[in-house]
C-alpha cells in the first residue's frame, strides 16, 4: 500500500454561485460553494478545486471570500483557477487560504509567467491547466492542440509538447481538460490523458467528460492519471465522493477511505 489516487471535485463558480456549463455554455445553478465544499469534505474528497468563471473583473473578489470561508473550516488542499494573470493574483489566492493556483491562458500568452510564479511561490502551488482538443483526422496519428477562450480559440501549440515545457518551467502539476469531452458525460479522452501523463514526470489530473464512476477508474487505469477531477456528477448528487472511491477501490485502485 502506498500513495492513493485522488478524487477532486471541481466547483465552477460564477459570481459566488456554483454553476456547471455543458461545453462552457448552458449554465445550470448548482448551489452555494461553501456548503458544497463542506459536503465534499465530509464525503472524503482528497482536494477541492474552484474554477472562477466570473466574467467581470469587479466581481472577482467574490471568489476570494468563498476561498476564505472554505479554508477556515475545510482542511484539505484547495486549488483556485480562473483569472490568474499576475503574481499578485496568486498571492491574493494563497493569502485567502488556497494551497495551489491554476494558471491557464496566462501561461499561453506568456509562458515565462509560470517560471516566475514557480520561483516566487514554489512549484508545489503552481498547477498549469491545459485545455486540449484533438486536431488529427481519423486514421492519422493522434495529435492534440491547446485551445483558449473556453475551447473556441486554437493556438497551434501541441498539447504534449506544451505539458513538457510547462513542467520544465516549474509547474508542480498538470490539470488536463479535454475540450472535446468536457460536459459530454462520455468519459475522459484516455489517449490524450495517457500521452500527457507518460510524457511528464509531474502528477497529471484528468478532467472533462466524466459521466459515471467507471469513467473515473478508467482515467487512472487506462489514462494513467494521478488524480481525477469531476464536477456535475457530484454537484447534482448523482454519486457521492465516497461511492466513487469505493467503486475505484473495487476496480483495484488505491484510494483514501
Amino acid at each position: 500500500m502506498s500513495l492513493a489516487k485522488r478524487i477532486i471535485p471541481c466547483l465552477d463558480v460564477d459570481n459566488g454561485r456554483v454553476v456547471k456549463g455543458v461545453k462552457f455554455v448552458d449554465i445550470r445553478d448548482a448551489g452555494d460553494p461553501v456548503e458544497i465544499a463542506r459536503r465534499y469534505d465530509r464525503e472524503g474528497a482528497d482536494e477541492i478545486t474552484f474554477l472562477d468563471i466570473t466574467a467581470t473583473h469587479d466581481n472577482r473578489d467574490t471568489i476570494v471570500h468563498v476561498v476564505e470561508q472554505v479554508a477556515s473550516e475545510v482542511f484539505i488542499p484547495l486549488t483556485v483557477g480562473g483569472g490568474i494573470r499576475v503574481l499578485e493574483d496568486i498571492r491574493r489566492m494563497l493569502n485567502a487560504g488556497a494551497d495551489k493556483v491554476g494558471i491557464n491562458s496566462a501561461a499561453v500568452f506568456r509562458p515565462e509567467f509560470v517560471k516566475e510564479a514557480a520561483e516566487k511561490f514554489g512549484s508545489q502551488c503552481i498547477v498549469v491547466a491545459i485545455d486540449a482538443k484533438k486536431v488529427s483526422q481519423e486514421g492519422e496519428e493522434s495529435r492534440w492542440e491547446i485551445f483558449t477562450h473556453g475551447g473556441r480559440k486554437p493556438t497551434g501549440i501541441n498539447a504534449v509538447e506544451w505539458a513538457v515545457r510547462m513542467k520544465d518551467y516549474g509547474a508542480g502539476e498538470i490539470l488536463l481538460t479535454s475540450m472535446d469531452r468536457d460536459g459530454t458525460k462520455s468519459g475522459f479522452d484516455l489517449a490524450l490523458t495517457r500521452a500527457i501523463s507518460e510524457a511528464v514526470s509531474i502528477p497529471v489530473i484528468a478532467s472533462g467528460g466524466v459521466g459515471n464512476l467507471d469513467h473515473l477508474a478508467d482515467g487512472i487505469t487506462q489514462g494513467k492519471a494521478d488524480a481525477v477531477l469531476a464536477a456535475s456528477i457530484f454537484h447534482f448528487a448523482e454519486y457521492t465522493i465516497e461511492q466513487a472511491k469505493k467503486h475505484m477501490q473495487a476496480r483495484g485502485i488505491e484510494v483514501r477511505l
Binding site: L3, A4, G172, E173, I202, D226, R256
Partner: peptide, 9 residues
C-alpha cells in the same frame, strides 16, 4: 511521479 503528491499511509 515527483513530487510525491497526495495522501499516503
Amino acid at each position: 511521479k515527483i513530487p510525491h503528491m497526495g495522501w499516503n499511509q
